[in-house]
């Protein structure tokens, strides 16, 4: 009995202490609602001429943020990279504006661009050197953020460099378009056998013989679709026509056509036709000039690139 009583005593004591503990902690908190939150709204960095130019040309009209100042969290930590030279930022971004935004805007209108454009551009001074010995010149994260590498190599008369850069920009934007509204299923059935995850091992001629515009296009139907759009726009229709003719020549050449099961030129033309229809029906965009004197997207992009490269 005695034991039981002591146990009870302890129990009561415990219950009491818990009760005290839970109530005694209440106190009035000094909540100063007017206290300033430090760092709210980002860092306070002085704006320079470049920042103002970017604000006027990208942030204000399109809500596109262009990051050119080094930020570890925007760069890939596994690679040695350096920030851009300040003097290339405006030339690079005006190039992107002229050869990407302006042509789309002229045909599809400013609302279209504002609605679908990626919201962030990150500029990196050097290329990204990969362990495979290749370099990366551009990449995109989910259609939202586009990273342009090796901007420090920019020279206004280096057409190849500008085309490579613009190809990345158009490539990524085309992804946004098909992710918004899907292209026809037929596209995937034109050259279904050639898609491979090991596209890096596909040689350029092999891709051509299979009816792809580039080795990268062999990665998947989506990549194929956007590579077609980007390359036709950036390298031009004439270049594409030559590529198709060359594919046909290989197909017709007994010395070179062994193992070819279908006509790659025909495949490329089928893909082109689907793209023309897709852009027109879905987005109201003419890829090529719809009538004499009326400029299509390809003409506008080509004119922009040629005008950039002819500048001193």
């Amino acid at each position: 009995m005695k034991n039981l009583r002591i146990d009870k005593l302890f129990l009561i004591l415990f219950a009491l202490s818990v009760a005290v503990a839970t109530t005694s902690c209440y106190q009035e908190e000094d909540l100063n609602m007017n206290k300033e939150i430090i760092g709210l709204g980002g860092e306070d960095i002085a704006q320079n001429e470049i920042d103002q130019w970017l604000y006027t040309n990208f942030v204000q009209p399109y809500n596109i943020e262009v990051k050119y100042k080094w930020d570890q969290f925007d760069a890939d930590l596994t690679y040695t990279l350096v920030p851009p030279r300040e003097d290339v930022v405006i030339p690079i971004m005006s190039c992107i504006k002229q050869a990407w935004i302006d042509p789309y805007e002229a045909i599809a209108g400013s609302t279209f661009v504002k609605k679908y454009c990626p919201k962030k551009y990150v500029l990196v001074g050097s290329p990204r050197y990969n362990s495979s010995g290749t370099i990366t010149t551009g990449e995109a994260e989910g259609g939202r953020k586009i990273t342009i590498y090796r901007v420090n190599w920019y020279e206004s008369n280096d057409k190849e460099l500008i085309q490579t850069m613009m190809k990345t920009v158009h490539h990524e934007f085309a992804h946004t378009l098909h992710q918004t509204i899907r292209y026809s299923e037929e596209y995937m059935n034109i050259t279904p056998g050639g898609y491979t995850s090991s596209w890096t091992n596909v040689e350029a001629e092999e891709a051509q013989k299979l009816g792809y515009i580039s080795p990268y296009a062999c990665a998947s139907p989506d990549e194929d679709f956007v590579e077609m759009i980007a390359r036709i726009l950036v390298y031009g229709k004439e270049n594409f026509d030559n590529y198709v003719d060359e594919a046909l020549a290989i197909y017709n050449d007994p010395a070179r056509n062994s193992g070819m099961a279908y006509d790659p030129a025909d495949a490329l033309r089928q893909k082109e036709a689907i793209i023309i229809t897709y852009l027109k029906d879905v987005w109201g965009i003419d890829l090529y000039d719809p009538a004499p004197g009326v400029k299509g997207l390809e003409t506008l992009v080509q004119e922009a690139i040629n005008s950039i490269c002819s500048q001193e």
Partner: peptide, 25 residues
């Protein structure tokens, strides 16, 4: 951080043409 390019970045630049270092390093 020195957040836009200057002489100090030329030492770090992974492009061997800039500083004679190893490619990518």
């Amino acid at each position: 951080m020195f957040d836009t390019y200057n002489y100090i970045h030329m030492l770090a630049d992974p492009n061997p043409a800039i500083n004679g270092g190893d490619s990518g390093e």
